[in-house]
C-alpha cells in the first residue's frame, strides 16, 4: 500500500474532471430551448389536420367519407350535404356539412390525406395539441378549415 498523497489522490482527479468539463464547454449545445425556440420539423411531419381551400375560397372537401373509411382508428366523422347554387361550399356536387376528427383517438398516420381524392385534408406541423378536457378534442369543421386567404 502506498501512502496518502494529496496531489495524486485529490488534486489530480479534480483537475482531470475539470479538464473534461472544460472540453465539453466548447462544444455546441444540443438542448433546444423549446418554448422559446423550436426545432425544425421534418418535411413530412404529420400533426394537426387542416381542411384546405382552393384559391377561389371554395372548400376542397367534397364530403366523400373516403378519409373516414381509410382511418384505422375510426376517428373521422363526415356528414355530406348537397351544394346548391345559392349556397355553394365546394366545386363538386356535395360538401361536408359536418367534419369532425377525434384528435385524441387519431394516430396521425396520414391515411386520410392519402385517401383524399381532392387533397382536401392535409396534416400540418402544429404539434401543440394537449388540453385538459376530453370534450375539447373533437375538432369540428370550423376548427379544421383553413381561413379564407
Amino acid at each position: 500500500m502506498t501512502s496518502y498523497n494529496p496531489f495524486r489522490d485529490v488534486a489530480k482527479p479534480i483537475l482531470k474532471g475539470m479538464a473534461i468539463t472544460a472540453m465539453r464547454i466548447k462544444r455546441k449545445k444540443v438542448t433546444i430551448q423549446y418554448p422559446e425556440e423550436r426545432r425544425e420539423q421534418f418535411t413530412r411531419t404529420r400533426w394537426r389536420h387542416v381542411l384546405t381551400r382552393y384559391d377561389s375560397g371554395l372548400e376542397k372537401c367534397i364530403g366523400c367519407s373516403l378519409c373516414a373509411g381509410a382511418c384505422p382508428a375510426r376517428c373521422i366523422y363526415v356528414e355530406a350535404a348537397e351544394n346548391t347554387d345559392e349556397a355553394r361550399f365546394s366545386p363538386g356536387e356535395r360538401y361536408a356539412a359536418r367534419y369532425e376528427i377525434n384528435m385524441i383517438r387519431c394516430i396521425f398516420c396520414g391515411y386520410c390525406a392519402e385517401a383524399c381524392p381532392t387533397g382536401a385534408i392535409v396534416l400540418r406541423k402544429d404539434f401543440e395539441l394537449a388540453n385538459y378536457e376530453r370534450d375539447d378534442f373533437v375538432y369540428t369543421k370550423e376548427m379544421l378549415l383553413e381561413p379564407v386567404r
Partner: peptide
C-alpha cells in the same frame, strides 16, 4: 389532468 394527443407524442409535444 392533461391529455397529450399523438402516436406517440413527440418530446416537444409532451413538454407542451
Amino acid at each position: 389532468d392533461v391529455y397529450v394527443p399523438g402516436c406517440p407524442p413527440s418530446p416537444d409535444a409532451l413538454i407542451y
